[in-house]
Design a protein around this nucleic acid. Structure first.
Lengths: 149, 149
DNA sequence: ATGCATAAGGTCAGAAAAGGTCAAATATCA
DNA sequence: TGATATTTGACCTTTTCTGACCTTATGCAT
């Protein structure tokens, strides 16, 4: 089996394990794969390209790393599915969890998630009766997400 | 974790605790972080730069110190001002006009404005009584804008 | 006032720790 | 066999960490 293939498999499985985000140390991986470090770059540039749905970021220097992110190709579809899955009432915690998940899945970026979270927060619902807040939250959650469709 | 990162985090949390002004003793911090003093300077010059919105002042000699100040960026200042200007109740039209204005002033981008507009729309407030909607809207408007600060 | 001792903080160069590039050598495949 | 893909290694760049040496301020003794 080609080493490139092994490296690629390995990264792919890391991505599967960790919600589409894998972080590696180039040298460590090279050692564990029994290849020279630059081979990692070869695999990344030949297979983990944006056209194939990946983003590769890195930092040099002490504590450096290479981060590979799988980008959600059918964002709109995933988003629509997510919206449909929202019930008629949503607790604060579940809204937060929902947004975090969507962020991890690449449907939202951090700021979008933070904005929506603020709009879903009980802090904003001071004068709304307790028993109606979860219903309002669900409604706002759906409405804001629809904008991103 | 990189020591630089730890130091940076620490200073940032000091800034958060104390209204954007942190005062440290270089040697003490170095000891508590387990690094040499000059590493503190490294972190300050590499991360707490004016471009990133910080001012660093210091004094040598007995009773010396290093003071890091987070400077109010223009956008944040404008944003804060805008938020303060929001009353306790906001009509749908005025929320929309407000967001459009903020967008024109460069405080928001189009998508942020659209997201917040959705969270402020009556469409999301179906089961909230008419007379309470403007109050809820004002609250949500403020809460979401605060995220961008 | 003067001159040291002490207590800070500042600078800079070099080592160390990552990751990046590129071209030559090899292997694979159509 | 010719084109394309893989492998390797020499050399480069960026970021972090360390230590030796420098400058400035304060306080105290004379």
């Amino acid at each position: 089996m080609k080493i490139s293939e092994l490296i690629s498999q390995h990264i792919l499985s890391l991505l599967d394990e960790a919600d589409g985000i894998a972080e590696i140390q180039r040298n460590d991986l090279a050692v564990s794969m029994g290849c020279v470090p630059s081979q990692i770059n070869y695999v990344l540039t030949s297979r983990f390209t944006p056209e194939r749905g990946f983003i590769v970021e890195s930092r040099r220097g002490g504590g450096g790393y290479i981060r590979i992110t799988r980008i959600q190709m059918n964002r709109a579809e995933a988003l629509a599915h997510a919206i449909r899955s929202i019930g008629d009432a949503v607790s604060p915690a579940s809204a937060q969890g929902f947004l975090t998940l969507m962020m991890q899945e690449g449907m939202l970026d951090r700021e979008q998630a933070a904005l929506i979270a603020a709009a879903c927060s009980d802090r904003a619902y001071k004068n709304v009766p307790q028993h109606e807040r979860d219903i309002l939250r669900a409604s706002i959650l759906k409405n804001t997400l629809l904008v991103l469709l």
